[in-house]
């Protein structure tokens, strides 16, 4: 992939009011400089971070999403939403990876109210990283229409994913490493595959068929999915009467 010249990534940042937003303020007060790539949305707590926001931000032409919160153990609230923000991060990464988007496009950093310098550093670093990744979609080799379709497919599943999160993935660890380890564990991957991955595939296929009917191969090519998986998912979907096979056209269409 060739990165367009003068490519400057767009980042949308979601910062908690008490630490990261204050750290960004201090960064300004201290006049530390960082690239003008980031626009900031203030939230009271990083626990307010919703998977929906990630998808919406990426659907809207941002190349990366940044989440800033208080260091673990320093959340302003008794709810300690920054731990949940970590779960959101990992879930988002998993979902993005599943639909072929580079999970490095979402990043979470703890920045305290006194770490103005650190804020500048992490924004600069993330900007540099995204610059090498290239524009969203282009960097992944996904065309804009398919990208949108994939993100929408994830978004449609969010209510279900939130229930799965509550029932199966609500965890509380001590540190970032343990979260990373948990979300990368074989058990979690298996759980993810059985509870979310298949539904995600179906959601994408349905999104695609919503436009018009398509053959199995066409679907596999557009979604960059193994043909075997597409066949499998189409079989499931036919059983559930979500799609039907159009014998005449030799294509699948929405039921």
């Amino acid at each position: 992939m060739a990165i367009p010249e003068n490519f400057r990534p767009k980042i949308l940042g979601f910062l908690c009011n008490w630490c990261s937003y204050a750290g960004a303020d201090l960064c300004g007060t201290s006049r530390y400089q960082y690239p003008p790539s980031l626009r900031i949305i203030r939230m009271m707590c990083s626990g307010r971070m919703d998977l929906d926001f990630v998808l919406r931000a990426l659907s809207n032409g941002n190349d990366g999403v940044f989440i800033g919160g208080c260091w673990l153990g320093e959340c302003h609230y008794v709810t300690e939403g920054n731990y949940d923000a970590l779960s959101v991060l990992h879930l988002a990464k998993k979902l993005l990876a599943k639909v072929g988007i580079n999970p490095a496009r979402i990043r979470l950093e703890w920045v305290s109210a006194s770490q103005g310098n650190r804020f500048a550093e992490v924004v600069t670093e993330f900007t540099n990283e995204l610059t090498t990744l290239g524009p969203l979609g282009e960097g992944e080799g996904i065309d804009p229409a398919t990208l949108k379709l994939k993100l929408d497919a994830v978004a449609r599943l969010l209510p279900y994913i939130k229930l799965v999160e509550r029932e199966k993935i609500r965890v509380r660890f001590e540190n970032k490493e343990e979260y990373a380890e948990f979300f990368d564990s074989p058990a979690l991957n298996a759980l993810f595959d059985t509870t979310i991955a298949d539904k995600l595939a179906i959601s994408q296929i349905l999104g695609l068929l919503h436009e018009r009917q398509r053959s199995t191969r066409e679907i596999a090519d557009t979604l960059n999915m193994p043909i075997s998986e597409v066949t499998e998912r189409l079989k499931d979907s036919s059983r559930q009467k979500l799609v039907r096979f159009d014998e005449a056209e030799k294509c699948y269409a929405l039921a």
């Binding site: 707590c45 307010r48 971070m49 609230y77 999160e165």
Partner: peptide, 8 residues
């Protein structure tokens, strides 16, 4: 008003 419930 931290809004954790909102995202859950």
């Amino acid at each position: 008003g931290d809004g954790l419930c909102n995202s859950k």
